[in-house]
Amino acid sequence: MKRIDELPRTLKPWSDGSGELMAPAVVRVGIVGAGPMGRLHARTVSRIAALDGTCALASVVDRHAGRAEEVAAEFDTQAFTDLDEAISEIDAIIVCGPTSTHHALTSWLLKKGLDVLVEKPLAATVAEAKQLASLASSCERILQVGHVEWYNHGWREAVRLAGVPETIEVERLNPESDRGLDMDVVQDLMLHDLDWVARYLDDTVVEVKARGRRVKHSGIDEAETELFFRSGCHVRLRVSRVFPDCRRTVRVSGSQGSVVADLLTRRVEGAPESSGSGPDPLQAQWRDFLVSIRDRKTPDADAVVGVAALELVERVRESIEGRGP
C-alpha cells in the first residue's frame, strides 16, 4: 500500500455514461444509521434542501425498520432496511453507524461508485482508515470525514484574534450518555481538537504526554494531553464523557494576546453581539461536501485528514498506556 502522503487526491468527474461530463443538479442524499446522529444529519440535509434546493434527502437506511421509518417520516422521505435497494436512488451517502462498521460499509459504498461522508472517526484503526483512503483514491470518489469542529466559528475566531499561537488550551467535557461507547474518549472527543491544532498549526508534533482513566466504562472516560510542536507552541487538551455538565472552551494565547471562545455558542468572550456566531458547523460541513460533489474538489476534511487524526489518537493512547517514546 502507498504511504498516506503519497495518495493522489484526484476525483472522478460525473458522467451520464455517454462520456459527457455533468454534475447532478440536485444531489440525492442517503443516510445510513437512524440513531441520534443520523437524525441530526437528516435535519441538516432537509434544511439545506429547503434553503437552496442543492440536495434532497432521498432515503434513510437502518436495519431496524421502525427506527428508519420514524426518521424517514419526520423528514418526509423513504425508509429502507436494505442498503443495496436504497443506493439505486442516491448520488451520495453518509455513514452514521457504529465505528466498527465504518470500514466495511464505506468500502462497499465506494466500490458502488458513491461519494461518501463518514461520521468521525473515519475508521476504528489507522490501518483501516488508510485502506479507505487508498480505496477512495483508486475509485476516484470523494471520501469526507465528519470532523465537524473544523467548521466551528468560535475556534476560527480565537486563533485569528490571538495571532501567532504560543499556547492553546481546550476543554471538551460532556455529561454521561449512551452514545459513542464503542470507542474511548480520546477517539470520540479529543480527536476533534487533535485534528484542529495539527491542521491549523501545520507543524510537527515532537512530543506527546498524556494520561487518562476509566471511570464507568471499559474504555478511557477522561484524558489530558500535552502536545509539543516544533515551532514551540504548547497545546493542552482535556476531555471527559462523565463530567457533570457540558463545557467546551478554547483559550489561545499568541502574539496578539489571549482569547477565549465558547465552542458551544461559537462566540469569543467579550466580542460584541454583532460579531455573530458564524454558520452552523454541521450545515457548513454538509455544504463543503455538496460543493465537493458538484465541483469534484477535495473537501476540507478528506480521508488523508481522517488518517492523520487517527495517527495522533494512537500516539495519545500510547502515551497513556506507557508505550510511547
Rank of each mutant, 00 (worst) to 15 (best):
H153R: 13
E119V: 04
L11G: 08
V206L: 11
R236L: 05
R211E: 12
L237S: 02
S107Q: 12
E149Y: 13
S88V: 12
D5H: 10
G33A: 05
I168H: 01
L114M: 06
D203C: 05
T204Q: 14
P165W: 08
V259I: 14
G232S: 03
L110K: 04
V126W: 07
V206A: 08
L110S: 04
I87S: 03
V268A: 06
D280Q: 02
D300Q: 14
P8R: 11
R141L: 09
V316G: 01
R39Y: 04
P272I: 15
Q187V: 06
G180H: 06
A86S: 11
I31S: 05
A23T: 15
H147N: 14
R213V: 15
R3L: 12
E85N: 09
S134D: 12
T10K: 12
S88Y: 04
C246L: 12
D262R: 09
R230D: 12
T225F: 00
G324L: 09
A49P: 00
R238L: 15
F289S: 06
A56P: 01
G180T: 07
D76M: 10
G30D: 00
E318C: 04
S137D: 05
S59Q: 02
S88W: 09
E169R: 15
L40Q: 13
T249P: 02
A198N: 10
R247P: 03
D91V: 05
T298I: 15
G180E: 00
E226W: 11
V206F: 06
W196N: 13
S88I: 09
K120M: 04
A223R: 00
A49S: 15
V252Y: 00
E70C: 02
R67P: 01
S292E: 06
G33P: 02
I48T: 05
L194Q: 07
M37Q: 14
A261F: 06
T167C: 03
L312G: 03
R160V: 04
L143K: 02
D288G: 05
K111V: 11
H153T: 11
R3D: 13
V29I: 15
V305E: 08
G232Y: 03
D202N: 14
D203A: 00
G66P: 02
C139S: 11
V145A: 07
L114G: 07
P272D: 09
A50G: 10
A303T: 07
P175I: 14
E224G: 04
V291L: 15
I93K: 07
H234K: 12
L51M: 11
Q144P: 01
S218W: 13
G232K: 00
K297G: 10
V313Y: 01
S15E: 10
P24E: 10
E176P: 05
G163M: 03
A68E: 00
D203S: 06
S292D: 09
K216S: 14
Y200T: 15
A49Y: 03
V268M: 07
L310H: 01
L109Y: 09
P325Q: 08
D52A: 02
V197C: 13
V27M: 01
K120A: 08
V259L: 00
I293Y: 08
E69N: 12
A261P: 01
E119A: 03
I48H: 07
E169K: 14
V208W: 00
V242M: 05
P165Q: 03
E6G: 11
D16S: 09
D262I: 11
D84F: 07
V71G: 09
A92E: 01
D82A: 09
S292R: 04
